[in-house]
Design a binder for these strands. Sequence first.
RNA 1: GCCCCCAUCGUCUAGGGGACUAGGACGUAGGCCUUUCAAGCCUGAAACGGGGGUUCGAAUCCCCCUGGGGGCACCA
Length: 500
Amino acid sequence: MTNAIHPARVRFAPSPTGRLHIGGARTALYNYLLAKQTGGQFILRLEDTDSKRLDPAAEGEIYDSLKWLGLTWDEGPMIGGEYGPYRQSERKQIYNELIQELIERGHAYYCFCSQERLVKLRQEQKKRKEPPHYDGLCRKLPNEEAESWVQGGESHVVRFKTPKEGTTTAIDLLRDPIQVQNNTLDDFILIKSDGMPVYHFAAIADDHLMQITHVFRGSEWLPTFPLHVLIYQAFEWQQPVWAHLSVLLNPTGKGKLSKRYAADPKKGAKSVYVLDLQEMGYLPQAVNNWMALMGWSYDDHSELFAMPELIKAFSLEKLHPSPAAVNFSKLDHFNGLYLRNLSILELTERIQPYFEKAGYNADSESLLPIAALVQKRIRTLADAVEIAGFFFEESINPPPVDLIGKGMTAVESALAAEMAHKRIGLLDLAEHDAVETDLRKLAEELSLKAGQLFGILRLAITGQKVSPPLIATMAIVGKSLVLSRISEAIQKLKQLDHSK
RNA sequence: GCCCCCAUCGUCUAGGGGACUAGGACGUAGGCCUUUCAAGCCUGAAACGGGGGUUCGAAUCCCCCUGGGGGCACCA
């Protein structure tokens, strides 16, 4: 594999305008994988050149999300690096120098057109059914004149002087070469009137300056890809390897993965935000594994890749260009797999915060045997509370009718419960096999199926129709509580009969 | 409207001219196991969007159509 030979310098360059979602995280993951695989560097860069859209909370959440996923960066904010600063807002001077060079080279020019004129221009073009574009008015301005206006403090932007003739070929790793006629390209803005660069310029400048070797980014950049190539050519810089990743679609396959799904977790659609996934009880390795497989595959049957395997197995050649609808039930599946791979001790530690959050006083000692019982029954850490919360409940209050055994009357159920109460009183609940043998014998004596008896006891003891295995559950609940709950159940069953 | 990209089961995908009666996974249906629910195991249903070419031969190559997605900002 060619990419294994040279260490790759790759970057994840989010804009701190919102929370990190799985689309961005998956891009970060691929970058990380390539860096680790090749012994290169994974760089984090903040593209914060639009002050209007900045979200003060976003930066921190990006850090937290990446750290939770284990995608730690080798250079970037907080930790620095040789190629800093890693916030674009702090690199204004660098861009200014570069833009001067571009103007001198004759590839960029000052533009003094007002926003109003531009808006009007576009409206007219639209009316004429032309694609909106800058008409090049200021392109014709003599350099000296423009220069003096700038000196005079005239508000201005800097535009790229897009070639009017010829074609530009952009090479993307995942697709055929993309060829466009230069005359269909706009004289796009490089530097805004506030002096800040626009993405098209800042990203390219930084990728070059930071010696980025491979650029992974969303395919929403495909239409402007040739523009970026043109900037490289104007500077006579060497381009990185480009790979435009498939977009992630909503679970329905309709439309780009949207915030609406994030805010609307109904119908199996979970949140698209990384930190929400953490809170819901997903494991980072499951999320990584899941994300990696949207747009990348290894072969025709391997799917389970923990991070070390992912780093080994990842390859640019197997990246897939077509859009992918996210499938949250597959995330559940992976999470279940990783959950079952955890040691009981680790599972205990992981589920403990969820019990605490639910208001249960669950220390790890008491949680340990419970963890063992729920491990095969949960798909998220939060599920553990749902299925085993009753262990920490003072009183469980099953609806009396639920206590009636399958195909039985309340009287029969009460009788069975009474008999069971007597037997259990004589048993050592720690002896699982003996308890089971005895209760089965009792069922037989009562002419009941084991399931009928167990069902009554299950409801009586756990308050749930679905629970971990009864015998083991009883051992954890403890004899005295088991007996008192069965007694309560007997009372309820009797009342049920009387009220009839 | 214009530009760009994409196209295999419901979903994620393997496939890069003959090994394809198209493989795997999720989900789904049925079964086994079973004290419930899971887990596990077994079995099944389920796809090459359409039309033209090229070729002895096409899921694989080319063209058109259709469908889907993305983009057309002093946002990224």
